[in-house]
Design a protein around this nucleic acid. Sequence first.
DNA 1: TCGACGATGACCT
DNA 2: GGTCATCGTCGAA
Length: 193
Amino acid sequence: MHLPPHHFATKTAVELAQELIGCELHSQLGGVHTAGIITETEAYHEDERGCHAYGGKRTKRTEIMFAEGGVAYIYLCYGMHHLFNVVCAQKGRAEAVLIRAIEPIIGTKLMLKRRNHKKVEKNLTAGPARLSQALGITTDLNKISLKPPQIWIEERKTDYIQIDKSPRIGIDYAENDALLPYRFTLRDSIWIT
DNA sequence: TCGACGATGACCT
DNA sequence: GGTCATCGTCGAA
């Protein structure tokens, strides 16, 4: 069963980032279906410096983070990478979870084609820009609601997993907030960065 | 308008 | 380990 958009509105980013580990991220774009198990996430919220909406800053780009949870926040990084986030929390509160890595499970052949790879290996879908490319996610889909048939999340199917915590990647500018344990990874998975 | 700078990844040594 | 591609966003001018 997929998690309905309103589910995300009830969660903080730190809660959701952990809950999403082990869930499945699905995309059905151009009539083709791809999906993977979420193995790595990061939490962001407006009270810490790593967040684009730090201090409640509303700009054209960050406005979607203040929407009610259940929509996608997809933005372009380094001029070429499309990074996918799940907006959560209630309307008016900026919180989101960055999906950083997945383990491919459905449509791996198409993922290989989209990524121009020959072989299924870690760098096919481990990395926030890599998984977006593998699933066909681009900024065109920014702000869409997270429900079938475009992009949605299926609940975790295994009953027990272990989650590790560590500091987030690539946010040195966030000063002391860069040390917060807001990165979550599926223990023993090879599909993490 | 303009310039600085990224929630990165590919490729090279 | 290191280099660099590439462009939207944001704040300063």
